Simulated scan of single mutants.
Amino acid sequence: MPVTYVLVHGAWHSGQSWARVVPRLGASGRPVFTPTLTGYGETRHLLSPDTGLGTHTADVVRLLVEEDLRDVVLVGHSYAGMVISAVANEVPERIARLVYLDAMVPVHGESALDAMPVIRGMIGGDWRMPPPPAPFGLFGITDPADIAWLRTMLSDQSTRCLEEPVAMDNPALAAIPRTHIHCTVKPVDVEFRPVPSVQPNGEPADVRELATGHDCMITTPAELAEMLLDIGDLAASRLSSPAGAGR
């Protein structure tokens, strides 16, 4: 059974950040969508103090509904771990698998600040948050050409993105399998919370690693794409099973 990839970028980035991954995934014949969330990239002019997690959740839900996307492998990078969690809570029937790509992994009622307390220090007195300075603001990228490209896509974000709590109270959410991909090269001491050994659906945890920095879609796109293709095969296989076909 075919699956569709929806790749959701993290804070300060845009859908352009997946540009090196999309052709590799697309070569498999599976559809790939890379939405830019409201307030970032080409939509930066729409950024306001009210732009938050709810805005970004609505962005992705609208894409899934308007395009009638089903059997979706929903990938969230960094902050977008919050977004994909909220999306799956709203439309669990459309999601085949959640992929937390070096991402925040919240529980019901948490904000990004709860899921990753170290970022509290980034919030100042203004609602607008510019991209952080180096080294954190380079997101693990060291190649000068890649840094220059990264800076073309970075833009400010609203503090509301980090402060707004996530809703994860739909019982159907727990049934969706999850994969966690961790980038192991950290320029600064920023760690995400440990992954429980058992998923909410009772399956063993699926945790994978990429030996690169946080922006793996830029630094190791081939390796990331290969991993996502394998995850897509896993999702398709599960959907084709008698249990998956009847979900």
Rank of each mutant, 00 (worst) to 15 (best):
A222V: 14
R44G: 05
G54N: 14
Y40E: 05
R151G: 03
E209K: 14
D114R: 09
A205C: 01
V190H: 07
L150K: 03
G137Q: 07
P171Y: 10
M227K: 07
V32P: 00
R208G: 02
T142H: 10
P49G: 06
H182T: 12
R70T: 13
I231C: 00
G41Q: 11
L7D: 06
I181V: 08
P31T: 08
L162S: 13
H45A: 10
R120Q: 14
M82F: 13
E191V: 15
V75R: 02
A211K: 14
N201H: 14
F192G: 07
R247Q: 13
E110G: 02
P165T: 12
L150I: 12
G140S: 09
G15N: 07
R44N: 07
W149N: 03
P135R: 05
L63D: 01
S85A: 15
V207D: 00
F139I: 13
G124I: 10
P131H: 01
D68V: 05
V118T: 10
L234S: 13
M227G: 00
R24V: 12
P35M: 14
R20G: 08
E93K: 10
V195C: 00
D114S: 15
Q16T: 15
P204L: 08
L47S: 03
N201L: 09
D68N: 12
S155R: 13
G10E: 06
R160P: 07
T34L: 06
A236D: 06
R70S: 12
V207A: 02
V60I: 15
T4A: 08
P49M: 10
Y40S: 10
R62Q: 14
P171G: 14
S241F: 05
T219C: 03
P23D: 12
T219Q: 01
L138G: 01
P171R: 14
D114L: 10
W149M: 08
A134D: 12
G121P: 04
V8S: 01
L25Y: 06
V32H: 00
P23V: 13
V61I: 05
M104F: 08
C216M: 12
E67R: 11
M217C: 14
P187R: 04
G109Y: 10
H13E: 06
E93F: 08
H45N: 08
V61F: 00
R193W: 09
